[in-house]
Design a protein around this nucleic acid. Structure first.
Length: 791
DNA sequence: ATAGGGTTAG
């Protein structure tokens, strides 16, 4: 036969193709052979062997496998190397499932895998995060006595680490008889990947003690963890190490180092490294732009972006674009943001999920929630990041109801809420006082293992506090293994809004005792807690100590707290004096706090002065009109009251309607004053009539001063009776079991008449009622409110 | 080696 005589020629040709990796020529020969042999050269195992090798060397594992399978099984059994190399080719860039299938095929054919098989099949398992098969394969190799091989063990460590099975990885590593730098690096990059910076650095010193020198891969592996943890001292030490060992010229090392400096806020060093690098690739540029953005030099970052495009002529990658968009978000400049949006379209990156999620978050951060929402709806593919971004964006822009709806939709869509999603979800519950949803989210977070995270617990503390369950906040707080400043702050805020000033101060003391440094927010929380509990001396003391002992320069917010504190306590002159002593020009907020105090203590003269000040500061807010109007009506100065109302109307300020809501069986029911639209409206009204009659017997008199409309007395009584907080409470009474406490949330301060009426209602119904208004909780019980009339 | 979502105050 001609073919037989020519085999050697073909073998030589194929070998040449293998050596030069020329796929095209190889394929031509393959075609030729098929024709020649009438599709029956399959008996020629030598040729099939060469063809398999050719396709492997050209990274075409699928073609290789097909040819390989035509070799008779009896012969294939002896070709372990070909099995291994095909698996390796699959493990290199997929499809990874094929690598695992082929491994099982190999075992089923009775071929014994070798130490060169396992690293690749394990790599495929970690790429797929396929723990089940990985563990099974680990079992196989134990039986083959490969459990001590250094390459196999390194591969196992890498596999377990990449799949998040740190304990298993450590077990394998500990049992290794010898460890080279690659084995150590596998452990180190594993810890680094999961953010365990401390473990990673400890291993680096351990390896040095064992006489193994870290190489540049070790450095590259550990740097991201250092940067993420913000440990710039370690970063500097590694930088020094790199200089001594001459690693600093490598692009990859330099990129890692400048990234660490950027993340730690040392833009100067980042710039220096960037400038010194001889070779910069696109990743280096991206890292530098990112460093500028992180260090609040966004302008510089955008300049670099421009420079790179013009001078270097590199087209930006999606990652770079995302970095630049993050910069735009930070600039809070929608104009630049819209330009970059167009640029994204031009580059064709709009379908890149990461890029579009960044854009989405940019719209939300720039306060353009409508753009964000539209963009979100138009996204064809949405993942948990997209949902998280739109949910937290909506809450932050004051739209908790929409955020809740989107969260519910997310669940229907089958996208699972992740940690960051819950981070946005709990503030929704806080805002709406939706306890049932909050508890549900807490349960979910436990199941998903999120509750080990400090920030999640912080969000839980805040959620329970704002849903009226301060004891639950404390429980979460006490169970935390570690606490950051936010945890302490959230706890202090919680006690503060419940009027538990003493407890707030005691938590603050605990905080100092354990050596946690309070920040500016801690003091805002502490001062406002004092203010809500009338702890004037304590407040004054901490205000002084804040500057003197903790070196915190008081901001406008701190001054606001102090004015509020003095004002609520009735020390109007002192408050007035305090304002004159401020180092800043007081803003409308500060004056409003004083005006509110004037209303409580009925000081019309000061109120008028303050009101003029506010007017001279420019645009007024509706609240001020209401305060002043309220003051005049209480003093029965009807003309002045009317004058204020006319002015308010002329200037186009409308009082935003009072709205109260409560959660029943996981559904939030909202009521506006005089609202008859609720399906149960008739029952609610009937209940209110009954309550009114009983209240009157106990001595309740409707305080018609709180009705701003100019109508008959009888009509005023009716308006009062249908204030939103009363509607919500009545609905709570008829729809919740008699022993259940009622929690109502209101968008404005609770009205004075309602405050009185609710005390009577707790006597009549023997039920606890809690109202959370804009600034605090009112717990009504047996005719008494926890606020001690401090509001 | 670079990269999207996040908690506390007002």
């Amino acid at each position: 036969m001609r073919l037989v005589s020519n085999i050697n020629n073909y073998v030589q040709l194929l070998e040449a193709c293998i050596a030069s990796k020329s796929l095209k020529q190889g394929k031509t020969i393959h075609q030729h052979l098929l024709k020649l042999s009438n599709n029956d050269f399959s008996t020629q195992s030598l040729l099939l062997d060469k063809l398999t090798r050719l396709y492997i060397s050209c990274n075409k594992p699928q073609l290789a496998e097909r040819v390989f399978n035509r070799i008779p099984i009896s012969e294939r059994r002896n070709k372990t190397i070909l099995w291994n190399q095909t698996i390796r080719a699959y493990a290199w860039d997929g499809p990874f499932e094929k690598a695992i299938d082929l491994y099982y095929g190999m075992v089923d054919s009775g071929v014994v895998p070798t130490k060169f098989t396992y690293p690749f099949v394990l790599k495929a398992c970690s790429a797929l995060q396929d723990v089940e098969n990985g563990v099974k394969i680990h079992g196989h190799l134990k039986r083959l006595d490969l459990g001590c091989d250094i390459y196999v063990c390194t591969a196992l460590v890498d596999f377990y680490m990449k799949c998040g099975y740190l304990v298993e990885a450590m077990e394998v590593f500990d049992r290794m008889l010898e460890r080279d730098v690659v084995a150590w690096n596998a452990m180190i990059s594993g810890f680094s990947l999961h953010g365990f910076c401390w473990n990673a650095t400890r291993l680096v010193s351990e390896m040095q003690q064992m006489g193994v020198n870290p190489n540049s891969s070790t450095v590259v592996a550990i740097l991201p963890a250092i940067g993420e943890a913000g440990r710039w001292r370690d970063g500097k030490a590694i930088h020094g190490f790199c200089l001594r060992r001459g690693f600093d010229g490598e692009e990859v090392v330099g990129t890692g180092l400048l990234d660490v400096y950027g993340k730690c806020g040392w833009l100067v060093y980042a710039r220096r490294i960037f400038g010194a690098l001889k070779f910069k690739n696109e990743i280096t540029w991206t890292a530098m732009i990112g460093a500028c953005v992180t260090c609040d030099a966004t302008g510089e970052g955008l300049d670099l972006f421009r420079k790179m495009r013009v001078e270097v002529g590199v087209s930006p990658s999606p990652v770079m674009l995302a970095t630049v968009i993050r910069g735009c978000a930070k600039l809070n400049d929608l104009n630049i943001g819209r330009q970059i949006y167009c640029y994204t379209i031009k580059l064709g990156y709009l379908s890149d999920l990461m890029v579009s999620n960044t854009l989405l978050s940019m719209y939300a951060k720039c306060g353009s929630i409508n753009d964000a929402m539209r963009f979100f709806e138009e996204m064809r593919v949405k993942d948990s990041v997209s949902y998280s971004a739109i949910i937290s964006g909506s809450v932050q822009n004051g739209n908790a109801e929409d955020a809740l709806q989107i969260f519910l939709k997310m669940q229907l869509s089958g996208v699972e809420p992740e940690l960051a999603t819950m981070m946005g979800f709990f503030p929704i519950c806080s805002r709406l006082a939706a306890l049932q949803h909050g508890i549900c989210g807490h349960g979910y977070s436990i199941v998903r293992g999120f509750t080990g995270d400090v920030s999640i617990c912080n969000a839980l503390i805040d959620m329970y506090a704002k849903c009226g369950k301060i004891d639950m906040s404390r429980l979460v707080f006490d169970k935390m293994c570690e606490r950051d400043v936010v945890s302490w702050n959230a706890m202090i805020v919680g006690y503060g809004i419940h009027g538990l000033g003493r407890e707030a101060i005691s938590v603050f003391h605990e905080m100092l005792n354990v050596g946690k440094k309070p920040d500016d927010i801690t003091f805002i929380a502490l001062l406002s807690a004092c203010s809500h509990s009338g702890l004037v001396n304590e407040g004054k003391h901490w205000f002084l100590s804040m500057t003197q002992e903790y070196n915190i320069v008081p901001r406008m917010d701190h001054y606001f707290c102090m004015v509020d504190l003095l004002g609520r306590a009735g020390l109007l002159d002192e408050a007035r004096h305090f304002i004159s002593g401020m180092p800043y020009e007081p803003d409308a907020h500060i004056w409003t706090a004083l005006l509110a105090a004037c209303r409580i203590y009925k000081n019309i003269e000061l109120a008028e002065e303050v009101s003029n000040r506010i007017q001279s500061l420019g645009p007024e807010s509706t609240g001020n009109f209401v305060l002043l109007f309220n003051l005049y009506t209480t003093a029965q100065r009807w003309d002045d009251a009317a004058h204020i109302r006319i002015k308010q109307k002329d200037l186009g300020f409308k009082k935003s309607p009072g709205c109260s809501w409560l959660e029943v069986n996981g559904i939030v029911h909202a009521f506006v004053g005089g609202d008859g639209s609720h399906p149960q409206s008739a029952k609610i009204n009937k209940k209110l009539e009954e309550l009114l009659a009983e209240m009157k017997i106990l001595g309740y008199k409707p305080e018609s001063n709180f009705v701003y409309q100019d109508v008959e007395e009888e009509e005023k009584e009716k308006i009062l009776l249908h204030h939103s907080e009363k509607l919500a409470v009545a609905f709570g009474i008829i729809s919740l079991k008699p022993n259940k406490p009622i929690l109502v949330t209101k968008n404005l301060r609770v009205c004075g008449d309602c405050h009185t009426a609710l005390k009577y209602i707790t006597i009549i119904t023997k039920r606890e009622i809690t109202v959370r208004d804009t600034s605090r909780f009112h717990h009504f019980r047996n005719g008494i409110c926890s606020c001690g009339e401090f509001w």
